[in-house]
Design a protein around this nucleic acid. Structure first.
Length: 187
DNA sequence: CCCTGATTCGC
DNA sequence: GCGAATCAGG
C-alpha cells in the first residue's frame, strides 16, 4: 500500500488534529505507526509540540553517524527550537498523547448525568468500522446495529481480550461479583 | 510494560 | 520515498 493523495491528506488532517501516530496508523490501516511517523517527517509537518532539543543521537549501529559538524543550519530544523521558549509550551505531556482512545465514549458505566450537547467536539476517530477491527482494537459495539451510526469502540484492546480496558471491565464485571451469596443480594 | 514521537539507514 | 529498527522519553 502506498501513500495515495487521499491517504496523505487524511494523514495530515488527523495529525493536525492531534491524533497519535499509532492511532492514525490504525485509522489508515495497512501501515504501522512508524510508517506514519516517517511520512509525517518527510512531509515536514512534524514537531507538534516537543521540547527536547533533539540533539543528533548516535545510533547503536556500527556505522557511526559521522554527522558531526554542519547540521544546525538555519534551515535544518523546521520547528526551530529557539521559539520553544516564546511559544506557550505545554507543561509536560503534549496534551494529546495517548488516552485519546479512552475518550471514546463511556455511556454504559459512566453516570453520564449531563447529556453533553457537544455535537462537534470529540475530534477523535469515533469508533471504527468492522473493516478496521484488528486484534488490538476494542470490538465493543456502539450504537444501534443496522444504523449508520453503528460502530465499534476501536480503542486499544488488551492482549487476550477483545475489548479495551473500559469495556473489558464491563464485559467481565460479573466475574468479580460472582459470589454465591451475592445472588441473594439482588434477588 | 504500556505508550509517545524522533532518528537513522537499508532498501 | 519508504518504513523497520532503534532510540529516548513519559
Amino acid at each position: 500500500m502506498s501513500w495515495n493523495d487521499e491517504r496523505v491528506e487524511l494523514l495530515k488532517k488527523l495529525w493536525s488534529e492531534g491524533l497519535s501516530a499509532s492511532q492514525i496508523a490504525t485509522e489508515l490501516g495497512e501501515v504501522t505507526r512508524n510508517a506514519v511517523i516517517g511520512k509525517v517527517h518527510r512531509l515536514g509537518l512534524s514537531g507538534r509540540a516537543k521540547s527536547a532539543p533533539t540533539p543528533a543521537r548516535p545510533r547503536a549501529s556500527g556505522t557511526a553517524p559521522a554527522k558531526a559538524g554542519p547540521m544546525n543550519g538555519p534551515m535544518g530544523a523546521p520547528a526551530g527550537r529557539p521559539d520553544a521558549q516564546a511559544r506557550p509550551q505545554r507543561p509536560t505531556t503534549i496534551g494529546n498523547t495517548a488516552l485519546a482512545a479512552d475518550l471514546d465514549e463511556a455511556p454504559e458505566e459512566a453516570p453520564a448525568p449531563a447529556p453533553v450537547m457537544s455535537d462537534n467536539v470529540v475530534p477523535m476517530t469515533q469508533g471504527c468500522t468492522i473493516m478496521q477491527l484488528t486484534e488490538s482494537t476494542c470490538r465493543w459495539p456502539l450504537g444501534e446495529p443496522g444504523t449508520e451510526s453503528f460502530h465499534f469502540c476501536g480503542g486499544k484492546a488488551n492482549p487476550g481480550m477483545p475489548y479495551c480496558q473500559t469495556h473489558a471491565r464491563i464485559a467481565y464485571q460479573p466475574v468479580q461479583d460472582r459470589r454465591r451469596d451475592r445472588r441473594l443480594a439482588f434477588l
